[in-house]
Design a protein around this nucleic acid. Structure first.
Lengths: 152, 152
DNA sequence: GGCCTTTATGTGCATATGCACCTTATAGCA
DNA sequence: TGCTATAAGGTGCATATGCACATAAAGGCC
């Protein structure tokens, strides 16, 4: 009896795995443009959601739809660079964040680079395909709401 | 003169940010099913790409389309649990990985939970929408090839 | 005002991610 | 047979991610 050639396993299509794969590649694509500014895509997103009006951590996290604790740490490099400043308001529990002048300038430069990346991405994907993809993503986001804590 | 109410910034739609957001939520969705097995979605993906036939690290990384160094560390918990074993082949540089018997059993249990998650996800998104989304993701992956090292 | 609950945030832990750089084998070739 | 280029992997560093747990301040009530 001969030895079976073991085929490499090809798992069933997993939407989650595909999403992670595509996200890895897409992130790399954007970051190849942001690299000269030494900025990650996530950091860019945070910068773009900040303004001169102070926002509490949780409020900002909600708007970014990211975990509060992830944001806490994600803000650190931006604070270190002096692009964001932290204040305390009347409620001593809250930390309020806002862009500094330098942060505002940085945001503009970053947005310019981002726009190039976005255009280039749409060119690679094809405009109409990119539009359709964006719509699907948006729709998926609205259909897949995060599970509420369900206080039992 | 009165004080302007500073509106919170609403950045231009960024495909990358959207993808990251959706990936975060989707991963959380799958992992709520895999949690009882103490398995992350990434680890599940790795398990599903392993078999009884030994594969070199780089080969496995290519098939998973993930970074080689990420995989090195991603394999660690699986090795620790005894689901995967590492061997050395004729070429002393290579590390070959394959499932153990326990790993095979784990893979089956994990796949059952994953299947529930996948079905539930498709139910939440709607079958036809989920199918369409999957196709878009696949298509996007094939259009957005990673930049080759460009040996200058 | 003191007590209890809720709210806002931080920290520890364990991965996930990928770039830059380092080490070790193997392969090619003079 | 050496010498050199290349291939396979690992490590250090800096973030990204999110759960479980801890702390402190605010709010409500009696």
């Amino acid at each position: 009896m001969h030895i079976k050639a073991e085929p490499l396993p090809t798992p069933l299509p997993c939407t989650g795995a595909r999403l992670r794969r595509l996200t890895r590649r897409t992130t790399a694509f954007y970051e190849s443009y942001l690299r000269e500014l030494d900025l990650r895509l996530t950091q860019y997103s945070i910068l773009m959601h900040l303004g001169s009006a102070p926002q509490a951590l949780t409020e900002l996290a909600d708007r970014l739809e990211m975990d509060r604790t992830t944001l806490t740490r994600g803000l650190r490099p931006l604070l270190r660079q002096g692009w964001v400043e932290e204040r305390r308001g009347a409620d001593a529990r809250m930390r309020l964040y806002q862009l500094t002048d330098g942060g505002l300038a940085m945001r503009e430069r970053a947005q310019a680079r981002w726009a190039e990346a976005q255009l280039a991405l749409e060119a690679v994907l094809g405009r109409s395909f990119a539009d359709a993809l964006n719509q699907r993503l948006e729709e998926a986001l609205s259909r897949l709401k995060p599970a509420l804590p369900e206080d039992n």
